[in-house]
Design a protein around this nucleic acid. Structure first.
Lengths: 230, 230, 230, 230
DNA sequence: GATGAATGAGGTTTCATTCAT
DNA sequence: AATGAATGAAACCTCATTCAT
């Protein structure tokens, strides 16, 4: 939220000057789209697309109703952009992290999955899961985007790790796809939950997310391991 | 469609009851509320609460716009009724099934969980999961209902089974709540998915639900078992 | 204006009863479209399409904003309907009158043209000329309608009369089309004028329309006659 | 485009005038108002006042939205200026031409009317007729302007010629005003038509304007002449 | 002078709800 | 009980105008 990287850090600030932003008008223009996207995501996730008023998005972003339309052609456009933008950011992160790590499949899964999903859960990207679940049927193009950019690469990545474990003898010869779902669905659900029932006053899930993620991964690993630890 | 047997089955009234009156008309009247609820559920799940028009609900139920208001005081009323009605029906079913079964914790879980969730997934009750996920934040009373009628008793039931397994030595002394979530979240997610991404044209999950549910339960059981089968 | 023929004069009213209208609700519904069209025509002609507010049309027709949309799908729809409806009515009238008359070409023109154009000028159909002139370029479909339903048949009719006069020796062998325009353009312009400059306070044209029309037709007839009266 | 010779023709400044300054930039500045008026006229005529966007006017004139407001205080101001400017230019031309000519009333009308109206029809001044017809009722001040600057002097001029013909025995003792309208209305209508139905794809008037104007004047002259040519 | 980002009043259209029939 | 015509609040979006740069 409000994490705009302030675009192209404009020349190293001269020592002493407190990095004055170049000019309020220009600054604003550069940041508007991102601020609007943040506001839109927050409200779409909270209230749903149809129940969110464009004026509220604008107000939350600190601009007037009309300004929104200088940057996005319609409320629906805003929805598309919010999803595709936030999703691609997060997926790129995941691939980068995967490339950086190494080790046994077991180790890899224990670190990579826990890290990436914790970051996702705690960033506002987690809201996108709930948003997509709620709105795909009204906006079929989102389905395609999601499949190509998220489901497919995600399954590939995790499925690849499971397969490696099988090949190396760490894991039993399980049905890879089925295991991928067993691993991933609770994590997705965690994100969804955080922005639906989890956001309500009610007692809710009395369990630390991080603790649960670790326990869940361990549970699955033990379930597929050839040599379960005692 | 749990309840309404659809007006076609006009079985002869049992002797003793006064010759059933012009049937088709009387029957209809009695079934209206339920038909409206069916229609509402279908559309709320498909389009979301805000994007569903009362007129569409009425039309789908085969009545006029005004008639809807003879049975329900508002669109929101319809939402509340749909959820609480469908939910209580399904939960009662679950408790009944649980009471009927017996055997080891492992066995119990393998049959009970698979059966109940498969029925739920295939009935239109599965849509309620998606509906609740999408709408709770706009209607906080739903959260309370859900917690009291679903989350709480559901966790109790499954948690109870896990605890029994631990007590009997079938399962390792795991954190019960955590395991409950690992078990249940993919199953909930399956229901949600069926009415969001799963309902789109896109390739989607290429996995038989029943096969997955079995595999998932097995995976978890192996993960918590003290004597995993080789 | 407000000249709705009250649809299907419902059975001869019993002598004594003042022809009670059948039921206010039903009555209204039947008359609404026509009342809305009247209101729309008046305002579109007066202010132009873009400057007319749908709410004003509704108010002038004595209904609320929303009611308008029960009968017409959009403001533009209203424009199309107004034009095509009023035009076809008037043209049918003209053809009927032409069929009814007979006599020499000269006589025919002197009666038919004067009568039809005077009626048109004084009915609210005259506004349609101004409306079409002002709006065709924004709504090209109107051009087609106008050409097929008005320009074409109108030219045919008048051109036919001129040709008959030439054939019978009443008129010199003039260029028919050119004469048609010389005849018709001032009459069209009279209609247009009545709803633009003619509607302003300014001194305006100090000439009785009927007197002008007669004089104009006489002038043209003398211009093409083979035996101009002395 | 009566006035602005378009910045391309940079004829060498006549000796004596100080070497023209950085030309293209200075020139532009001086021509801005006129370029804006041209753009405004074109769009007002094409789309109507209300449906024309100030931004489109600015873009067509090659400046930004804000610049427009440096020269004109409002969109309405632009409308007033466009009309009064174009009108006075054209009327002045007409008076000049009238003063330059001489001869019999018949001759005068045959040359003067044909020339002036052909020039008007082909310049963008013709659009002003359509614009005025469409917009007077929304801007009553235009009516006054039009009456004083156009209708009045125009009627005077033409009426004067007719009267001269009557006095000289060329024309019969007709009603002058009526004849003026018979003469002028088709010519005005020609201008209006050119920017409304005439601008559409439809078949349209299949008649050369110049041929028609000549024929029309001839027709009227024959209609009022005391000695019609055989 | 020139720009174009920003504003917000105002216009069109939708839709939950009412109520006369 | 059932209908569906009518309402009007409210939502989306546009665009004339302003003003900081």
């Amino acid at each position: 939220m409000s994490a705009e990287p302030s675009e192209r850090s404009d020349l190293p600030a001269m020592a002493g000057t407190p990095a004055t932003p170049p000019a309020s008008h220009q600054r604003r223009k550069a940041e508007r789209p991102s601020e609007l996207l943040d506001a839109a995501l927050q409200l779409f996730v909270e209230k749903g697309f149809a129940a969110t008023k464009t004026e509220d998005i604008a107000r939350l972003a600190g601009v007037s109703k009309g300004t929104l339309y200088l940057y996005y052609t319609s409320k629906e456009d805003l929805l598309r952009e919010v999803i595709s933008q936030r999703v691609s950011t997060r997926i790129a992160e995941g691939l980068a992290q995967a490339a950086a790590h190494q080790g046994s499949a077991t180790e890899l899964m224990r670190t990579l999955l826990v890290d990436w999903w914790m970051q996702t859960l705690e960033s506002d990207a987690s809201g996108v899961f709930k948003l997509v679940v709620s709105e795909v049927r009204n906006f079929p193009e989102i389905a395609e985007l999601w499949f190509n950019e998220v489901s497919q690469p995600g399954s590939q990545l995790i499925g690849g790790m499971v397969q490696r474990g099988i090949d190396s003898g760490e894991f039993r010869p399980v049905d890879v796809l089925s295991v991928v779902y067993s691993i991933v669905m609770p994590l997705v659900m965690l994100c969804v939950h955080r922005h639906s029932l989890g956001a309500c006053e009610c007692p809710g899930m009395s369990l630390e997310p991080q603790a649960f993620i670790r326990a869940h991964i361990d549970l699955v690993l033990r379930g597929i391991s050839t040599h379960p630890e005692p």
